[in-house]
């Protein structure tokens, strides 16, 4: 019963995305489509970051580092997969093959970013609050400096896989949103399961949670790995949207932008994170002509938000679908 329902929903969803993708291709200018894709990538970033910063209450300031790992790993995998399969400038893969290549690459991106989340999280998640923020920032800087100093990955000028035209641009509406919906569903399910409840308990009182038989360190590291892996996928989509990635794409302001997204929506709320991601994606473009004021506006927004409403617009509440659209869930969820 569950499986038939899920299969039906999945097929309907894929058809819908495919249809929208086609319509966007036909009738909407590239510029707008690009903004929509940005919003989708942002949504993955925000929901991923929110799992650790919001739900678990462990403030990371270094998720740009995981995004970088995901971006480089995805691009590296796609490039090498292509040459292994014999694709090149005169033998371009078919569109469906492009998406498949990208998706395999994204799996690598998730794997390596998740691994980075483990390596960073395991030692540092013993620290609390602002110390954790600083250490994660430190790790992100180290990751960035490693990429900057690795000539095999293009060093400071960035990675384009040795292609004169840069990385193949395989990211399109369909794949962004397929991955976004997939990842957000997974993280949403996780958040509303017993695991998510344990994570929220850690946010509220770590010592009490530990006293209830929950290995809080292991839980935090688990959240960090999932969070990093999701952000890594977003990094991979970003790489194959931009066509080139440079270490400087993943500086601290990238992490801050992600934090703005989850703060606007409300720390700890999955739907809030999505709203924040869209807000940032759209305003970022709206302020394109006044580039130099963009970061200024962000910083004012950040300060104002903290003074006026430190828990974010939604707080940790969720926006829920109207009752008739919701499927009844088992248990007490």
């Amino acid at each position: 019963m569950v499986w038939t329902y899920r299969t039906a929903v999945s097929i309907a969803l894929i058809a819908l995305l495919f249809g929208i993708n086609w319509a966007l291709d036909q009738y909407v200018i590239d510029y707008i489509v690009r903004i929509i894709m940005q919003c989708g990538i942002n949504a993955i970033l925000a929901v991923g970051l929110n799992l650790i910063n919001g739900t678990t209450g462990q403030f990371s300031l270094g998720h740009a580092g995981f995004m970088a790992v995901g971006a480089y790993a995805t691009a590296f995998a796609v490039i090498h997969l292509e040459s292994w399969l014999g694709f090149n400038a005169s033998n371009i893969p078919a569109p469906w093959m492009q998406g498949l290549l990208l998706s395999v690459g994204l799996l690598f991106g998730a794997l390596f970013a998740g691994l980075a989340g483990l390596l960073v999280g395991a030692p540092s998640l013993r620290l609390r609050g602002d110390y954790l923020a600083i250490v994660t920032l430190g790790f992100a800087e180290i990751i960035r400096l490693i990429f900057t100093n690795t000539e095999a990955l293009g060093g400071a000028t960035g990675y384009s896989g040795g292609r004169p035209l840069g990385l193949p641009v395989y990211t399109n509406f369909f794949w962004v949103f397929l991955w976004a919906i997939f990842l957000i569903t997974l993280i949403g399910n996780f958040t509303f399961s017993s695991y998510g409840r344990a994570l929220r308990a850690i946010r509220e009182d770590e010592i009490a949670t530990e006293a209830l038989g929950i290995n809080t360190t292991r839980m935090k590291v688990l959240a960090s790995v999932i969070s990093a892996a999701a952000v890594g996928v977003a990094g991979g989509l970003f790489a194959h949207l931009m066509g080139t990635i440079r270490p400087d794409d993943f500086k601290m302001d990238r992490s801050v932008a992600m934090i703005v997204m989850i703060l606007v929506g409300g720390l700890g709320s999955v739907s809030g994170a999505i709203i924040g991601a869209i807000f940032v994606g759209v305003t970022l473009e709206a302020m394109r002509d006044i580039q130099q004021y963009r970061l200024l506006a962000y910083s004012l927004l950040l300060i104002g938000l903290m003074i006026a409403r430190p828990q974010g617009l939604l707080g940790s509440r969720e926006l829920r679908l109207p009752a008739f659209l919701r499927r009844k869930r088992g248990g007490a969820a």
Binding site: R197, E204, G213
Partner: peptide, 17 residues
């Protein structure tokens, strides 16, 4: 040390995790 922003039921359920 209760989890103040969680419901009474959730507080108890956490201990079953």
């Amino acid at each position: 040390r209760l989890f103040g922003d969680m419901t009474v039921l959730e507080n108890v359920m956490v201990a079953g995790h």
